[in-house]
Design a binder for these strands. Structure first.
Length: 339
DNA sequence: GGTCTCGTGTTAGGCTAATG
DNA sequence: CATTAGCCTAACACGAGACC
């Protein structure tokens, strides 16, 4: 059976293989930079998961897990296998290989052979066909850096981004590189997909072994980049990034136009008359905005309505798309998404 | 026909007991 | 004491049907 991440007790030691697992998320960061630089699109993990062809069996009760048996039991624990069971009816033997994700513990395991699920909190992850499963497995290590103590983490995983590398051969080469890097016999004379990236990771791995704190520094820098990104977004919203163009129409004028348009639609009975919205109090204003901008309530610029789901017979194969809650994804409307 | 409400199944969050 | 297992509950999403 192909083993996933090593148990935590190994992580504190100082050998080549352990450093690999300890630093994998950093390496994935470097690889992601490479994909970003080469204009690869990044997609949400949640959009790349394949629906399993079977109903996931409920996890075994701990009393039913034995020290020997016909089938290995895999839970979200750090140990790859926690025991064995003969409950063949609970065997997960379809859609393999699968990635086992510990919703509580954040463990990530790559499983190729049939197994039985131990306890709850185990999420089975199967990427869609455009992904090599092992490529997907490795890149998941770069995603969950935040922790919610012993809360659930699957939502973080689903919201994480992965490079959409359509070239399956390239995915395999990246996987081969990472697999080879786990061995201290690794030599960077042999190029898998990109000499410079591979060398960067190899050098990092070597430096790690020397007790170098590059990884810590890199993680620190990535955190700073994240903070910078958040600040940029905040500044953009507050209009601090660029000078206001003097020729731009003031927002107050635009707001008046919108109000007039709404009143016209109400007069034409195309919209229902809405309740008067309360004026914005000074204490409601979260931050200062440029002179040309103006605060308003969402209801002033939009028509907010609700309704129920039409019956199945009302749906047509073509025509105006019908949006459901699940079509609203990552602050965008995704007309094609299906849960 | 449009809107509202309720029932049902699923998922996420979090607490705590059990375990080693 | 840290980690893991398991349970409870809130929130979400959807669909059906009642109501105006």
């Amino acid at each position: 059976m192909s083993r996933g991440r090593k148990p935590s007790s190994y992580l504190r030691s100082n050998n080549w293989d352990d450093i690999f697992w300890n630093s994998l998320s950093t390496y994935i960061g470097i690889l992601n930079n490479y994909f970003t630089t080469n204009n690869y699109e990044f997609v949400a993990i949640g959009d790349c998961l394949k629906k399993l062809s079977f109903t996931i069996p409920k996890g075994l009760n701990s009393k039913e897990i034995h020290s020997s048996g016909n089938h290995p039991v895999i839970s979200q624990s750090k140990e790859y296998i926690i025991g064995f069971s003969d409950r063949t009816e609970l065997l997960v033997d379809k859609d393999l290989p699968l990635i086992v994700f510990g919703d509580h513990s954040k463990t990530i395991k790559y499983v190729e052979e049939p197994f039985i699920i131990g306890a709850d909190g185990v999420k089975l992850v199967k990427p869609i066909g455009s992904f090599n499963a092992r490529f997907f497995y490795y890149f998941i290590f770069g995603i969950i850096t935040d922790t919610k103590d012993y809360g659930r983490h699957f939502s973080l995983l689903r919201n994480g981004l992965i490079a959409k590398v359509e070239d399956l051969e390239l995915q395999v080469k990246v996987v081969e590189f990472l697999d080879a890097l786990k061995s201290d016999a690794f030599s960077n004379k042999n190029v898998f997909f990109n000499a410079s990236v591979e060398n960067e990771i190899y050098e990092l791995q070597k430096n790690q072994l020397k007790g170098n704190d590059i990884s810590t520094e890199l993680t620190h820098q990535l955190t700073l980049v994240k903070k910078l990104r958040q600040q940029l977004l905040q500044d953009a919203v507050q209009g601090k990034l660029i000078e206001q163009n003097a020729t731009d129409e003031p927002a107050s004028k635009l707001l008046k136009k919108i109000k007039a348009e709404k009143e016209k639609l109400i007069a034409e009975k195309k919209l229902k008359k809405e309740k008067e919205l309360p004026p914005i109090k000074p204490e409601e204003i979260p931050f200062e905005i440029p002179e040309n901008c103006v605060w308003c309530r969402l209801g002033e610029i939009a028509y907010i309505t609700s309704g129920s789901t039409p019956s199945q017979t009302a749906f047509a194969a073509s025509g105006i798309p019908y949006l459901k809650m699940y079509n609203l994804r990552n602050q965008k409307i995704d007309f094609f998404h299906k849960p």
